[in-house]
């Protein structure tokens, strides 16, 4: 039997983590959203973690989404243990969230050797940063920044394909 694999999706509140995992899961999804009690820019927020399971040719792939709130940072370390990679999400239309995205990104880079890609969401907004510009702000490799729509099943796969490409040695 193949060892299960996992990929961790992380990023600030409202970056699209739950949406991405719901899109990927096609129903096999654990929803842990709760109604937001403070102004965070959306009606609900993830209070535990999102989880989707996929069968990849006989190997089970678990995709975990971390809660965006800072007090759950410790969960990232637990989830990242032995992970295949991390998808860090950042919103292109909310520059105010980018410092938080950078905090998470730097935390990940210094705590773990897990490979990463940067998934940039909300590129369809009237004003939006380009994925490469976001990578520049995060001091990250711009070739690892991918713009995508987490609501679109075809598009939602793009950061995962880029992550696997990177693992396969492609820049």
């Amino acid at each position: 039997m193949n060892t299960p694999l996992k990929i961790v999706v992380t990023g600030p509140v409202g970056a699209g983590k739950s949406t991405l995992i719901r899109t990927l899961a096609k129903g096999g999804y654990v929803d842990t959203d709760a109604r937001a009690t403070e102004a965070i820019g959306k009606a609900t927020t993830t209070v535990a973690m999102d989880h989707a399971v996929m069968d990849v040719g006989g190997t089970t792939l678990h995709v975990f989404g971390t809660p965006g709130q800072e007090r759950f940072d410790y969960m990232w370390e637990i989830l990242a243990e032995g992970a295949l990679g991390t998808v860090l999400l950042a919103r292109a239309d909310r520059p105010g969230d980018l410092p938080k995205a950078r905090q998470i990104f730097e935390f990940i880079l210094s705590q773990s050797e897990v490979p990463y890609v940067i998934g940039v969401t909300h590129l369809d907004a009237e004003e939006a940063w380009a994925p490469e510009e976001i990578a520049l702000f995060l001091r990250a490799d711009p070739t690892l920044a991918v713009g995508f729509d987490p609501r679109d099943p075809k598009d939602a796969i793009r950061p995962f394909v880029r992550l696997l490409d990177a693992l396969d040695g492609k820049r």
């Binding site: 990849v56 040719g57 880079l109 705590q111 995962f160």
Partner: peptide, 25 residues
């Protein structure tokens, strides 16, 4: 920032199988 070097290497067969899965999807 002090970053950590990745020591573990995924088997390329596994990575390619997963890539093929996502591309098929």
């Amino acid at each position: 920032l002090k970053t950590r070097e990745r020591r573990r290497k995924e088997p390329s067969g596994l990575v390619r199988r997963m890539l093929a899965f996502f591309q098929r999807r």
